[in-house]
Write a protein that binds this DNA or RNA. Sequence first.
DNA 1: ATTAGCTTCCAAAACGTTTCGGATAGTTGA
DNA 2: TCAACTATCCGAAACGTTTTGGAAGCTAAT
Lengths: 342, 342
Amino acid sequence: MATIKDISKKLGISVTTVSRALNGYSDVNEETRKRIQKAAKAMNYRPNQIARKLVSGRSGIVAMVLPDDYGITTRDIWFEIISGLSSEFSKRDMDFVLNVSARENILGVYQRMIDRGTTDGFIIIAPVKNDPRVAMLEKHKVPFVIHGQAEQRFDYAYFDIDNYGLTRRSVEYLIGLGHTRIAFVSGPKEHGFVTHRVKGYSDALRGHGLEPKSAWIRYADKMSEDFGLVSAIQILSRGGEVPTAFICGNTLIAKGIYQAAASLGLSVPNDVSVIAHDDALPDSRAVSFDPPLTVTRSPLRDSSAPLADILVRRIQGAPLSELQVTVPDQFIERRSTGEPAR
Amino acid sequence: MATIKDISKKLGISVTTVSRALNGYSDVNEETRKRIQKAAKAMNYRPNQIARKLVSGRSGIVAMVLPDDYGITTRDIWFEIISGLSSEFSKRDMDFVLNVSARENILGVYQRMIDRGTTDGFIIIAPVKNDPRVAMLEKHKVPFVIHGQAEQRFDYAYFDIDNYGLTRRSVEYLIGLGHTRIAFVSGPKEHGFVTHRVKGYSDALRGHGLEPKSAWIRYADKMSEDFGLVSAIQILSRGGEVPTAFICGNTLIAKGIYQAAASLGLSVPNDVSVIAHDDALPDSRAVSFDPPLTVTRSPLRDSSAPLADILVRRIQGAPLSELQVTVPDQFIERRSTGEPAR
DNA sequence: ATTAGCTTCCAAAACGTTTCGGATAGTTGA
DNA sequence: TCAACTATCCGAAACGTTTTGGAAGCTAAT
């Protein structure tokens, strides 16, 4: 592999100048730069990343650590995230290191990677309250970006959708249709996004003089079709008042609720309206539900590029204030929502 | 972070000796070594991998590139492989870089990674005939290991199960039970493992004076439940002779065949025997089929460690002859196979 | 004619290791 | 006593970059 020295020797130009020419510094004559670039291309020169890292202190390597169980949803979510991130970092000429390990070893993996010091930064997904990963990375001053918001604090880089607003708008929309009894089926309590969604849901209800009922708020360990099915049947077959609408943490839960409704002889949307948040995974398409599902939509795939950007800029030392991004989602009205029966 | 120099300075011992002490060379007094080790621990010294790599010429990084479509089976297979490999390399203090990209860009990704030169070696999975990835890596003399065997050639490192023997034994077993009409539903023709399996299947039949019928050999683009279902129905509802047994490339196909049998009012194993190859993915457990599925079994998970070993040794320059491994599988007789009806 | 400033270049140091080729002192063998 | 070993240590070079701190030459302003 050609090195910078080879170019320098061949052209009779100092190593310094070659380096600076190739790195776009302004203190080299445009003509010399051209010559150098031409030679570099001719000799198929590629900067040795290792050497570069030794002096710059950076490796161009970022990492993500995943649990080997399904996590809160399905492997499809992991895969979607992995795909997006790996290709985004690849575009930026960085290496995306993945480690999948047993949940109980994850902190150990972080420790080892931090110790080895080959990793410029980490991406953290599915943050929980007082996330120990965050604590560890902060302690060692390793840059990271969180997908989602874990804490009430705001001194870290994150990218998130507007979880609060998303349920808030769903509730407003349903109330607008005439609903007053609205259930919410979401994910595990300890996850930040769930907290925010519940708050958005509750605030919206209270804003219209309705008091949220705890029996109508369900927290899944795993946001699956099964959980949607079970929750809906439990909620709908309990004595007394039943909800006329369901808000779902994802489309899988919605699918379970469709099934529950069918099993109970109820129709969507005539008897129950259903609305879900849609991560737009390639496999479960809300539009091909029957009836097509009304959603708040923010494609998971769209988070990859911003996450990569934020992490890169964090590594370069950009101020935190620029690295805290919340994006709006899209509200898509379809046929799973309508006026309540009576 | 403490460096070797800090230790050297603190102890008044040369950098060389510190390095050699820590790396277990014999030309350092045991007592000095103790002192150095103690100091290293006290100062929380971790060798800087990057610096180490600069001199050794290796990066400690291996990579795998995957297509972003489902590939021949499901994402679960990818995830299983990724999990296994990433944790194996992690154990070896190496970084596992993953890149998921559109199928048509994969060669470009390889090219870029090769050019950057930060990758010590690659793992190639699901090889096809005249695989362009193999050609490219060979051309650039980059070490790699193949999961499976792609070619008739034998001058590359690979790890594989005995695909030929696996179908061969399945056929022998079924013939032993009295079957003479046996179908085989497998994966895409261009994949090496399919070729080998078909050969094992055909050879076994011919060995007993039976001629394989091309109508009873099915090649799936995607080894899915759907393909099993469709294939079985097509084969079983065709006029004339129908098979009394099915051999399946994986358990998903078997599941499809179970469903086809049920739909056609046929019983497993009374009307059709079913036997499959089982990669032992955590989600689809052959033992909980109804009836439990007879399989040739070789857990995909078990291939991670050997693959990692082989690649590491390839990178270190071990001779190819030691790096070509085929492992036997386990034959597990369950209740999906029996004597043919008449 | 001097100073200041700009453009263009470069030698050398630095990053943190490993490794090469000794050097020193003590011990052994003849 | 001298040569040959052995055990233990070390200086310096090397890996391929980037960065620091000028230097040289030229132009423009004073």
